[in-house]
Amino acid sequence: MKQILVLLAVLAWFSEPAAAQKKATPKAKPTAKAAAPAASLAAGKALYAQSCLSCHQADGGGVDRMNAPLTQTTWVLGDKTRLVKVMLNGMQGVEVDGEKYANVMPAFDYLTDQQLADVLTYVRNSFGNKASALSGAEVKAVRATNKK
């Protein structure tokens, strides 16, 4: 509960300058730094606890040489398409920031587009991460072109 309140406070703080900026410069990309919707974050948090936490840990830091960290890595903060594909296809044997991680990450393709959007939005805005939200539509588009 406390964390949700903090999140809401953070969201309120971010939404104000974003709104002001929108009025002043209408050409600015509106989604680049858009705050993540609270509902998506809350749903994502629950999904994280269910599906991700046992490997990536409560603090998102992963496990040395076993499970990759989700903190401050381009895999999480960078290209959304690549990130969605990790969820759809799983991952193994890929180096993350110069480090090998031994365990297999299974595919989470059984989650819905909205569930994947929620959990990725949560991960991109937790553990010290700050990156744009994902929508169900974005995930759907990646899934449509995803080659297994």
């Binding site: 799983g90 365990n103 297999v104 990450m105 299974p106 595919a107 059984y110």
Partner: peptide, 13 residues
């Protein structure tokens, strides 16, 4: 592998 599943570490595999 973890448990010799059809898909390693996959839920209900």
């Amino acid at each position: 592998a973890n448990a010799c599943q059809v898909n390693d570490r996959q839920k209900r595999s």
